[in-house]
Computed example of a mutant assay.
Amino acid sequence: MTRARSNLIDPGTTPYYHCMARCVRRAYLCGYDAFSGKDYEHRRQWVVDRLRELVTIFSIEVCAYAVMSNHYHVVLHINSQPARDWDLDDILNRWTQLFTGPLLVQRYLAGQTLSSSELSRVKEFAEEYRQRLQDISWFMRCLNEHLAREANKEDGCRGRFWEGRFKSQALLDEAALLTCMAYVDLNPIRAKMAKTPEHSEHTSIKERIDQTRNTATKKQPCLLKPFRSQGQNPDTALPYFMTDYLQLVDWSGRAVREDKRGFIPSDTPPILERLMIDPDEWLKTMRWNQRFYRAAGRLKAMKAYAQQTGQLWIQGMGSSGRIYT
């Protein structure tokens, strides 16, 4: 049953969400379309560039992404603290990078003198924009509308480009976040578009690997929310070390290959042990969308989420109880 977006995305429940958008009918977001003979490979960079732009405007961070042929995945984190600290000019300057804004806002930014009532209305606009700039629905709208306009312009057509509104899943705890990020980063390998993570073009894991290989900087990518590292504030970083995550993704990628399906190496990554994740169930959960729908997490968290959204049961509870022991 369709549910209101406000019931599905609640920062009070979790700040982490997995979002996915798919093109309508036979439309191609990226890649080579054998049916029409057209190559849309260059559009992959459109997605990455737009994400890079939006994270500098919104109070939302990207944890993982993968750009596929007719859809893309992105794991987002709502970081509300910066938005709370923005002053009036910060908010209006950010918002007007995306939208023109009302005439009163334009006059204020142009330095014109406003009456007290006009200034009060500008402040009301700013508070509304403050909320929107930490709203995943607005983030995805600014991403998808931009991509649709660019694609329709290039194709010389009008009409819908996406099959519908983006799909979202609440990631209720660290275990769900880890599982989903690995699933997203492994998408090109599962689709046989790449053999290894370091060759998976237009994915977050390749961007992280490329950046750390850069001997000049050795810094984590500015587009992506950083992993915990020495000197990194744990409150502003992903709750894992990057070396552990890379080992985990590489191990998972090897294990789900056709010639090695179900094989569990003896050197199971330490992060699985720390999070008490069952390795056999982890492999099955690499078929992520077949197991979880609206939300993912440990069974206790999913039961609480179901109760909060007025449901007795949500898809994935059985899987959750098996994988997250």
Rank of each mutant, 00 (worst) to 15 (best):
W162Q: 07
R257N: 13
Q134M: 15
L178T: 00
V24K: 09
S266C: 03
W313P: 01
Y17F: 13
L186G: 00
D39C: 14
H42T: 00
T309W: 02
T217C: 13
P197V: 08
Q112T: 06
S168E: 03
L171I: 12
T14P: 00
P269C: 01
W138I: 01
Q247M: 11
V256Y: 11
A306R: 01
I60W: 04
L92M: 08
R190W: 04
E41V: 10
Q97N: 08
V105Y: 04
L272A: 06
P11N: 09
R165G: 12
L143G: 00
T56S: 14
R94D: 05
L76D: 09
K167M: 02
I314N: 08
T203K: 01
Y28S: 11
D135Q: 09
V48S: 05
Y129K: 15
T309F: 00
T14C: 02
T100F: 03
T285Y: 00
R261T: 07
L119S: 13
A182N: 03
A295L: 07
F161E: 02
Y324T: 03
R254W: 11
Y129W: 13
R130K: 13
R5E: 05
G37A: 05
T56M: 14
L76C: 09
C63E: 13
I9P: 01
Q247C: 08
M286V: 06
M1W: 01
N7T: 12
P265R: 10
S117C: 09
T113N: 08
R322Y: 00
F161A: 05
T215W: 10
Y245T: 01
E198Y: 00
F139L: 13
R294H: 12
A110M: 14
L76F: 04
M317G: 10
L54R: 05
Y16A: 03
H42Q: 11
R43Q: 12
G253H: 07
W138Q: 02
L238K: 01
F241S: 02
E281A: 15
V74F: 04
Q169M: 14
M20V: 11
T285W: 02
Y129I: 07
T14L: 04
I205S: 04
E273V: 07
Q211Y: 10
T14M: 01
R121T: 10
K218Y: 13
T96N: 10
D39Q: 10
W138R: 04
F139R: 08
R107A: 09
L51P: 01
A191C: 14
R50F: 06
